[in-house]
Design a binder for these strands. Structure first.
Ligand code: MN
Ligand code: MN
Ligand code: ZN
Ligand code: ZN
Lengths: 154, 154
DNA sequence: GTCGCTATTGCAACGCGTTGCGCTACGATC
DNA sequence: GATCGTAGCGCAACGCGTTGCAATAGCGAC
């Protein structure tokens, strides 16, 4: 059942953070290219975590000539706009979080390979502990902690 | 001044965990090869953290024919014996901790590139927080948290 | 000291990500 | 719509780490 409470002067399309990308780029002297359009197209269809390799593969479906370096460079740009955030899985591979709502770290289970977000309160605990310890200021977005999930113990 | 309290039936040489490696390997059907001898020689001269790349370079000084894959494989073996422990720096490169006294995680400052150990009590705090959160059992040895040290803030 | 089993080596190829460089084409200006 | 400065592109090479495979060489047994 569609939610009846949404304000809708323009019912046709829901506003998406991706809609403004082209303008946001141009506003800072950057450019809106076919390659970037493709990547954004691909990102639109994702929610949550995706591997850089997956993104490249999907882009190559849209355009067979897609080059990895271009994708990585565009991901950097989008990360500066706050539209994606990357971390590193336990094997070191890059994992992108699309449209992150809040800064958060990740847990990675070496048993089943699943990734979880660290809840904000728990994240805050970690940040505070290390601030108290050495005055260290943690970059939570980049934190991936490896271990075993409840189901994979022993 | 030499500490006068050490028990010394064999004054000549201090017992080192490295002395027993050859036998420990052979005891489990593994072999003591010139390549492994070299790596252990190199590890003897280190205390604390070393990059895999550094170790390979030092090995190559002892033997110009040293191959990376062999070094990595031997490091794996030594890690199983508990003689080294590896983690990943913020850039993903492997960092080995030689003769770790206790399990611990690491902090990496993206400002100055320095690495610190997380103190046991602080580490325990993190482990407990995540156990309480999702029943997740953290592998502290593999944890490297990026951020900025006290001197590199702002 | 010799023999034989198999752990280990070196090599070559791969996967992921980064970087430098010359050429292309975006898009602001007129 | 044509011009032009420069952001971004593709490409080629690099660095780090891993893996499969055929050849080598530890080392335990005799
Ligand atoms: Mn990173
Ligand atoms: Mn690792
Ligand atoms: Zn699991
Ligand atoms: Zn620092």
């Amino acid at each position: 059942m569609p939610q009846p409470d949404s304000p809708d002067p323009a019912r046709a399309s829901v506003a998406s953070p991706w809609d403004g990308v082209a303008d946001r780029l141009r506003a800072s002297g950057l450019r809106w290219t076919p390659q970037r359009r493709n990547l954004v197209e691909v990102l639109r269809e994702h929610e949550g975590h995706v591997t850089a390799t997956d993104l490249i593969a999907r882009c190559r479906e849209l355009d067979g000539t897609t080059t990895p370096s271009t994708v990585y460079r565009t991901l950097d740009v989008l990360e500066n706009l706050g539209l994606v955030r990357h971390g590193h899985a336990a094997d070191g591979r890059e994992e992108y979080h699309v449209l992150p709502e809040h800064v958060h770290g990740h847990l990675y289970c070496v048993g089943c390979g699943t990734t979880w977000e660290i809840r904000p309160e728990t994240g805050a605990l970690i940040v505070d502990a290390l601030a108290a310890d050495l005055g260290f200021s943690v970059d939570l977005t980049h934190v991936t902690i490896a271990g075993r999930c409840e189901g994979c113990q022993e």
